[in-house]
Design a protein around this nucleic acid. Structure first.
Lengths: 182, 182
DNA sequence: AAGCTAAACTTCGAAGCTAAAGATTATATT
DNA sequence: AATATAATCTTTAGCTTCGAAGTTTAGCTT
């Protein structure tokens, strides 16, 4: 076997060669960047998933915890707001919150000032879980970037935000769910 | 509103500030890179999804077409192999192939040499759809990287593959489905 | 203030996924 | 050759999601 990757996944180089074979108009340099981005992200998500699983929460749970923590004290949001933020339908959010309430990660109560609204609030346990996940994630992320010099980090961050700006401008998010919180 | 982004999504800078507020041990530079990677990937997937939808195929279909085309002529794979490649369970693959057969994108037949096996083969229409999607994707990708100089492209590709190697080595893919073909 | 209209959430039905059990064929053992 | 074991796919049951319809409350309009 000349391939270090498992599960029959071709190496990045093999895959780009296959693309060129099947589609001549392809710029291999562009494809290299795009494919690397995609694979990198996939691997990172696997890693995050493993870490949150170790803490006894699902990746779905973690997304909700993140959104609540990032909203700042007192860590409250409505289901609709959460759904928009996470790229889910309100229906899906209802069920997710159901589960998380039984898991003790959040509470759900009606807003007494406006009884149509619902308030989802982080519990102490929810905050602890988020913190623990965050510690694991930051160790992993630092490890991931270990080989990059300070200059390379600066440069990479700059280039990526430039790409991000471009793609955000190009796509006014047409009616779009966004999925997958960062 | 001081925020150009829609749907109440905070800007990258706002989000990093929020992370620092809630988690002091965070390296903002690391977080910037990681968050930009994540957001970029998300946006790209939305773009791909829109393009494939325009062609009348689902993103799920596209993944299968990609795997088959990349396998090279005669564009045949078994369901199990496809499932592994796409990060699905064999059960999910069975259903996906059901659908794609009715859509005329692939054919399914038993392997006469080994009647336990099944052969999924790309149809002419399937190949056409893949090509059309590929043309759209390559235009989008070139547009995405438009602002990057040749040197920046080279450098970005090199850095990303370095990160990829690191994450692939660190995670021997423990029993893992991989999901999301690139 | 009675009745529309809109907003926010939940419920319902259909689709896709996973894990586990089941069915079918091939391979190895005795 | 008969049986056991393994490999490959399909079926089943449960969960999550989406889209659409339904429910409750708020805010307008007259």
């Amino acid at each position: 076997m000349a391939d270090t990757s498992e599960a029959g996944e071709p190496s990045l180089e093999e895959q780009i060669a296959a693309y060129q074979r099947e589609f001549q108009d392809l710029d291999p340099q562009v494809e290299k960047i795009v494919s690397a981005l995609s694979r990198l992200n996939r691997r990172m998500n696997v890693a995050y998933g493993r870490q949150t699983a170790d803490l006894g929460i699902s990746n779905a749970d973690w997304e909700v915890l993140k959104a609540l923590v990032l909203s700042g004290a007192p860590y409250r949001m409505g289901p609709g707001e959460l759904a928009k933020r996470l790229g889910l339908t309100p229906a899906a959010m209802t069920h997710r919150i159901d589960r998380m309430v039984t898991e003790g990660l959040v509470t759900r109560e009606r807003d007494e000032n406006n009884r149509v609204r619902v308030i989802v609030e982080l519990t102490g346990e929810g905050r602890e879980k988020w913190l623990a996940a965050m510690r694991l994630a930051s160790v992993f992320e630092e490890d991931l970037l270990q080989d990059l010099s300070p200059d390379e980090r600066t440069s990479l961050g700059e280039v990526l935000t430039r790409l991000l700006r471009r793609v955000e401008h190009a796509q006014p998010d047409a009616g779009g769910r966004l999925s997958d919180l960062d």
